[in-house]
């Protein structure tokens, strides 16, 4: 345990010095502020408090941003050690490869938590100042916060796996961008195209829900929208997936970090320094 903590402490310090903390916080704060400003138009008599509205738009933002930040922090985690030549020495210390990965994970999740707290916190503050009913949206914001961390952990694990597989930072960066494009952008586009082509047939009823659950980013979006009852208002894929219950999305979201980390450990075990 002390070894994991020491590993995490050292990694966090490195992230701080490499300005990763600053970059992640700046990104989250900037985008949150833009969203708050865009969402500050009067919500009218529809009933939803302003914070709940902001949470819905933060969710669609987080789907893109959280995996991106997570992959940016993790692609270098092992390939960088290999390239710097620091890995052989570390591996002769009495700590397991799983402990090394867990230490890095703890540090990177902490960086993510700081960035998310800053971004979401600011958005919440802005919403609350414009609408004193906004406190009603706090549970949804909290749900968004911790599920964002889970989503981040999934992509941190995936990033470590890619980092271990490619062994060179440049190669790992390419793979990470590919993964992000594939899972976050192309996957949804593909599903949308399939839905349109299928036009309510077998694919829409039998395959599509599973396809949504199989992608951690979609599961994250579904969970947050379903849990806040905003699915009906949501556009696009999530609207089409309103038959999927929140618990199913949550199960998928809970299993993914474990799978990603197991993958990372397996890939790391195969690295010979």
């Amino acid at each position: 345990m002390m070894r994991i903590i020491s590993m995490a402490q050292t990694e966090f310090r490195i992230a701080l010095r490499n300005r990763w903390v600053a970059v992640a916080v700046a990104m989250m704060v900037l985008f949150s502020l833009v969203l708050s400003a865009a969402g500050s138009a009067p919500t009218g008599a529809l009933g939803a408090d302003r914070l709940s509205v902001v949470v819905a738009s933060l969710t669609s933002l987080a789907v893109y941003l959280v995996p991106l930040v997570a992959l940016l922090m993790s692609f270098d985690a092992l390939a960088g050690e290999v390239e710097r030549g620091t890995l052989p020495l570390l591996l002769t210390y009495p700590l397991s490869r799983t402990e090394i990965l867990l230490g890095k994970l703890v540090a990177h999740v902490a960086v993510l938590a700081i960035a998310l707290a800053a971004g979401y916190g600011l958005a919440a503050l802005a919403a609350w100042m414009g609408d004193d009913r906004a406190l009603a949206g706090l549970p949804a914001l909290w749900r968004l916060f911790w599920s964002s961390m889970v989503l981040g952990a999934v992509f941190l694990g995936a990033g470590y796996a890619l980092s271990a597989l490619s062994r060179r930072p440049s190669g790992a960066a390419g793979l990470a961008i590919g993964l992000w494009l594939g899972l976050i952008v192309l996957y949804d586009l593909g599903l949308l195209a399939a839905l349109v082509a299928d036009d309510g047939g077998r694919f829409t009823t039998d395959v599509f829900p599973w396809a949504m659950l199989a992608n951690p980013a979609d599961a994250f979006r579904l969970f947050n929208l379903a849990a806040s009852g905003a699915t009906a208002a949501a556009a696009g894929l999530s609207g089409a997936a309103n038959s999927i219950p929140a618990w199913a999305a949550l199960t998928s979201l809970a299993l993914w970090p474990l799978a990603a980390l197991a993958l990372a450990v397996a890939a790391f075990r195969r690295v010979t320094p």
């Binding site: 590993m7 490195i14 620091t86 210390y93 009495p94």
Partner: peptide
């Protein structure tokens, strides 16, 4: 190791402290 390397962002003391903790 030959050509021993460390993370350039850490100080000597931080690096050694880390290794000490790894050995308990």
């Amino acid at each position: 190791p030959e050509n021993v390397a460390f993370h350039p962002a850490l100080s000597g003391r931080e690096q050694i402290a880390h290794y000490l903790r790894l050995r308990g």
